[in-house]
Amino acid sequence: MVKPLFKPSDLNVKVSFTTIKTVTNPNNGNSVKKPVTLFTKWGAYKRRTINQQYTILGTTTEDSIVIGVRHDNSINKTLGITIDNVNYQILDISSDESNNYLTYDLITIKKVAK
């Protein structure tokens, strides 16, 4: 039997998957773009090894974070992520398409500059 990446008790971070929608400001009627939550999942931060940290130095993923969530086919790179009111963009998704009972997707994210 394959050991899962996370125990269910490790999933202690609420991850909101968002998309950008144009909504109308009720106060003045102007159109504003803002993230709208499509669905949420519980996730966990995944630590990188020292070797992995050295490998990504000087790349676009240097300041990124890796989180793990239960596998879901609806997760794709066009979605955004919000964790603790901080917006992130998805850089990469490593989906577990195996036939195991507990499968997780590892998602590399980077904070969106305001």
Rank of each mutant, 00 (worst) to 15 (best):
K114T: 02
K7I: 02
Y54W: 11
P8E: 10
G80F: 11
L91S: 08
V112T: 13
L106C: 04
P8V: 03
N87E: 15
S94G: 04
L11N: 05
T22E: 07
Y54R: 15
M1L: 04
N85C: 07
Q52H: 02
R47H: 05
V66R: 05
F6E: 09
T103I: 09
I67P: 14
N76M: 06
I65P: 01
N100Y: 06
K33I: 02
I90P: 06
H71N: 05
N30K: 13
H71E: 10
S16T: 00
A44N: 09
K14C: 01
T24H: 03
T59R: 11
N25F: 04
T82E: 15
N51P: 01
N99R: 13
L106M: 08
K110W: 01
T103Q: 07
I65K: 14
M1G: 15
A44L: 09
F6P: 03
I65V: 11
D96G: 06
P35S: 04
I90E: 06
D84P: 01
N51H: 07
E62A: 14
K110G: 03
S98V: 02
T18D: 08
T103N: 13
N99M: 10
S74T: 14
I65R: 13
K111C: 09
V66C: 08
N85W: 08
E97Y: 12
I67N: 08
T18E: 11
K110I: 15
